[in-house]
Design a protein around this nucleic acid. Sequence first.
DNA 1: GAGTTCCA
DNA 2: ATAG
Length: 207
Amino acid sequence: MNRPVIRETPTSLPGFRLWPGALDAAAQKTLMDQVLAAAETAPFYRPVTPGGRPFSVEMTGMGSLAWVSDRAGYRYQPTHPVTGQPWPPMPQTLLDLWDALTGWPAPPDACLVNLYRGEARMGLHQDRDEADLTAPVLSVSLGDTAVFRIGPAEGGKTHGLKLASGDVCALMGPARLARHGIDRLLTGSSQLVPGGGRINLTLRRAL
DNA sequence: GAGTTCCA
DNA sequence: ATAG
């Protein structure tokens, strides 16, 4: 990355790690441009749940695999569901960030790109569609600040925190299966995403 | 606003 | 049935 991580904020949930401002403005812009370039060939689309209800977020992906949802269920697949083309490659900056922050010995093979605009949100859920549930999940926030909600895997009390552009967080170890979601955006808090909104990059090992 | 339960 |  252009710039090393400055600090890690302690959190009350063991295994949930937060690096506020891990990416400086220049690194955010570089990454934003890379995501927009990827979206030229892998356009954002709106998935549906297995029950046929549309998501409020739009999605695309990068890397050898990306997570998709449709009437057939949840899965990782190697191609864009609309174009049928392979996902664009994962930017090297993301592979470097994964190495630097997680130290996991194998690189991520999937990067889900979620676009939040307006009232878009993501209900509380667990990431459990990956083959190896011990590998970390790394999340990069770009654009508008969002209220992120997280709580224990077993259920119980959750708490909300703001994730701003350039913040990076991880679910690892005992927090790997933590319940988490996005309550709402603070619309207009950033100008990074063209047309406004927030883009979240989620790096995972799907296989 | 936060947290729980239910529905499908 | 699902991250709705």
